[in-house]
Design a protein around this nucleic acid. Sequence first.
DNA 1: ACCTGAACACCGTTCAAGT
DNA 2: ACCTGAACACCGTTCAAGT
Lengths: 197, 197
Amino acid sequence: MNASEPRGRKPRADVQRNRAVLLETAQRHFLRHGVGTSLEAVAKEAGVGPATLYRHFPTREALLAAVLQTRSEELVAHQAKIEQLGHSAEALEQWLRAMESYFSAYSGLPEPLMAAARAQKPDSPLTIPCDILIAATDRYVEAAQRAGHVRASVRGYDLFLAACSIAWIKGNDTEEESLDRLRSLIASGYLERDMQA
Amino acid sequence: MNASEPRGRKPRADVQRNRAVLLETAQRHFLRHGVGTSLEAVAKEAGVGPATLYRHFPTREALLAAVLQTRSEELVAHQAKIEQLGHSAEALEQWLRAMESYFSAYSGLPEPLMAAARAQKPDSPLTIPCDILIAATDRYVEAAQRAGHVRASVRGYDLFLAACSIAWIKGNDTEEESLDRLRSLIASGYLERDMQA
DNA sequence: ACCTGAACACCGTTCAAGT
DNA sequence: ACCTGAACACCGTTCAAGT
């Protein structure tokens, strides 16, 4: 119950517009300059004072979480495709790739996501998307384990961490070939022996 | 051939002292506040002007590389111990752990090391220590491969990347248990099947 | 040859004043 | 209720002036 919330009533038109412009501008700046981009520059290009940005998004992470919303929906859409795949081990692999892309959206994104995943910081706005991803990974892992394709010792959280790491490495301009070798090394780690190439 | 170098002559006493104090102060600040610590604060606590720090260490990475020198020597010492181990697969594992500790020395250290490892930035002062570590990892990997303990597809660079990632994850306060699971997942990835527990 | 401290530019964050 | 722009604190980096 927040007293400053006008319960149920529509926000003023300029407020809605400011929020939309800030989000769009922020996304562009995150894309070009990474998650550490200057918030002052974002506000200026959005045509608002810095304090307006802070009112809408009290922390950098709050802004980041809001911007990621769109991308999260794409991920969910991708899940629908994966589900029709049938083969649970391939589904898991595709899911890991999809997460990796998600983590690679903006340079420097893996860092705050990782920090939010282990909920030491009580409630970062990024904790929610992370928890959703981890839960989804758990489902894929468990399905593949029931089919006998993935070792029993593996947990979804492990592969979430692995995907995040790969995205982090990718962010530092490593060549795709090294990434592929690392990916297949990890796959050899979680697949049952008889599933390995 | 640098004209400003007084070839062969000893540097002035105050220069030597400044350098030593800067290194010691910087190490303390890196330890407490991570590699992103304020260089201004380092200079102030070392009792010199900011420009003096910049003269000695033109970039943050140069300062970092100089501070890491000491730690590198500890690593080499550890290598001597490992060499007496006999078992090449265990030697490799211990070496990976030693690198991991090295990467975890200061919070935020994996990031610049990773950037330097892939020599896109022509010559970061961190490229040299990285190349040394990669070469050493290659030797351990090849020895273990000759003994039939490690898969032929694995390269030292892959495991260097993996160790760096683990250190990065560790830096974000993940619990030790998750790290252990990830470590053993990676081990299952590089060990030959008959070597796995 | 080296050092000092002032100077400049930039950024995050907050606050008094407006509408 | 929301916005604005000034203000404050902090930092990286450079430069003129000193010794």
